[in-house]
Amino acid sequence: MTTKTTVLNLTEEEFVHPGNRACSGCGLSIIYRTALKALGRDTILVVPPSCLTVLQGLYPIAATQLPCLNVTFASTAAAATGVLGALRAQGRKHTTVAAWAGDGGTADIGLQALSGACERGEDFIFFCYDNEAYMNTGVQRSGTTPRHVLTTTTPVSGKPQKSKDVPAIMAAHGLDYIATASASYPIDLYDKTVKAKTFSGPRYFHIHTPCPAGWGFPANLSVKIGRLAVETGLFDLYEIERGRFCLTGKSARMIGKKRPPVADYFKTQARFKMLSDAHIEAVQQEVDEKWERYEKAGVPADQ
């Protein structure tokens, strides 16, 4: 990281009005508020149906202070392409185009348009805020819902399948910049967003976004739970910069350190109620093996 941002020097300028309809303790609100600080005023947003549509407000009042185009569910990245096309046609080259979609809008219904836009090399930043289910419609399972998690469409025994690795799918498109982030590490997200702006072409963010209502935990624990996902080694903060994988921030500092057991994370949320001890054990093994690989490979860390 070239820029060293701290809480003290992070801009006070706000781009989201209070009094919006996001739930109390919403993880998305934290990341949206922070990333917009990094994106700045010269930005056009593109948003499909999602919790962000709710946060943005009901006509004729908008919570976001940036121009924003609401589009159909499957078309986010294509619509971002259209905004860029018009900006190019008009010679408006300085404006950043940023798309914000949930996990369903990214990994499921929006994947085709996203893949197409990435293959065409469209010059936009795509933010996927992953709250691991269709929260806006009432917690239905999505492509990124982890295995055995209870949702309203996997209500008894949990989701049988494991989640898909969207950053890896994006990496297969050969993007110059891919980053993960977490609602619990806003400065890390801010820095990565500032950095992403220095690249051109498609750039992708995958952001772990705790959801009190959907995950079943008290609203005051959003940041704690997101932090636990990183500290247990379940969700890793990293960048893939021109193909080079690099752990960042808290995850980078965890190399060679002891991690709390993943069970600590699972027990904080009602959605993991159906996880068997055997499954938790299996997940722990997967996480341990992943971190062993990081350590053996000497995965470059940024600090």
């Binding site: 209070p18 009094g19 006509y59 908008a62 919570a63």
Partner: peptide, 12 residues
């Protein structure tokens, strides 16, 4: 076409 302003969701 919505315009930015506080309190879309009322006094939350």
């Amino acid at each position: 076409h919505s315009e930015p302003g506080p309190g879309d969701g009322g006094r939350t």
